[in-house]
Design a protein around this nucleic acid. Structure first.
Length: 300
DNA sequence: AAAGCGCTCAACCGCGTGTCC
DNA sequence: GGGACACGCGGTTGAGCGCTT
């Protein structure tokens, strides 16, 4: 038996929400609270799918949403958390009051991933080739901006034919922030790119704080902030009898046994992309659970 | 001014997971 | 234990807008 559709799509409205629909939804939720999304549209008099209502409320209508551009502090936090957590947008969003996962995801795709992209390029000895290719593409087309190529249609590096195994997302007990501590060994990317001290155990976001980044204040109003001043992401996990996980960023890339060296990447000799780079920052062979080091199994 | 194109972001989609019966 | 249902998440899409030629 196939999966049942979330709702009867026949006769339901799709696409952009009108002001009237927004008002109906807002009034209903203010009166009855969130939840019961499936029955909500009917009760609220909306010709919308429950999922659509939920999304509209969460991403747009909620009163506590912060609209407008991301601050540089928020941007840095997203970059840092993405490096630690990968594309766990909801987790990242939970540390940014007033921001939604969808908003952060969009911002990443349209702004930040490109920053990562340009960040790594100077290291690569393939730059001239890549840039020449891009120039050629730009020069040949009519109209349009002379801007950066859309990330939606990345131009493949013609020099890279080999597909790099992409690390899988580590499976956590539950979707909670696993950054009770991030152990960083000497010579790792965390040290290099995040300014972490060598060989130390970082408290959550310690590297950021120790750098004197003023934006740390932005999350001090978060519920995660403990009276003693630390951000305690482990509380949620502890409440659920979950393991506290810290990621041991060793130089290796996984159980696959591939030869891979940081120097090669820095020098541009190793084919990789920004997504791999970010994932590598938080992924490794080992993770530490309650003081014990465990092997992670990656199936590439 | 018009055409062509890329960019942004709201919205949709499918899947995974939790909960209830 | 297992099926049905509800919810949440990440990936993807596409309309609208703005920039460049």
């Amino acid at each position: 038996m196939g999966r049942a559709p979330c709702c009867e799509k026949v006769g339901l409205k799709r696409g952009r929400w009108t002001a009237e629909e927004d008002e109906l939804l807002t009034k209903y939720i203010q009166a009855n609270g969130e939840g019961s999304w499936r029955s909500l549209p009917k009760n609220a008099g909306l010709l919308r799918c429950g999922k659509s209502c939920r999304l509209r409320w969460i991403n747009y209508l909620r009163a506590d949403l912060k609209r407008g551009n991301f601050t540089s502090q928020e941007e840095e936090l997203i970059l840092h958390l993405h490096a630690s957590l990968g594309k766990r947008w909801s987790l990242i969003a939970s540390t940014l009051p007033g921001r939604t996962d969808n908003e952060i995801k969009n911002y990443w795709n349209s702004h930040l991933s490109r920053k990562i992209h340009s960040f790594r390029r100077p290291f690569s000895n393939t730059i001239p080739v890549v840039m020449e290719v891009n120039k050629a593409v730009i020069a040949n087309r009519k109209g349009g901006r002379n801007g950066i190529p859309s990330i939606k249609k990345p131009i493949e590096n013609p020099l890279v034919n080999e597909k790099v195994p992409f690390p899988s997302t580590p499976v956590l007990g539950k979707e909670t922030l696993p950054i009770n501590a991030v152990e960083v060994k000497e010579g790792t990317s965390m040290e290099n790119s995040m300014g972490c001290p060598s060989g130390g155990i970082l408290a959550p976001l310690e590297s950021i704080e120790s750098n004197g980044m003023p934006w740390f204040d932005d999350i001090t109003n978060s519920e995660l902030l403990q009276p003693h001043g630390d951000l305690d992401f482990s509380e949620m996990a502890a409440n659920n009898n979950e393991e506290i996980v810290s990621w041991n960023c060793s130089g290796g890339r996984g159980d696959s046994g591939d030869d891979w060296e940081w120097e090669s990447v820095v020098n541009g000799n190793e084919p990789w992309d920004e997504e791999f780079m970010c994932s590598w920052l938080w992924e490794s062979n080992d993770h530490i659970v309650n003081g014990e080091t465990h092997k992670l199994n990656h199936d590439f």
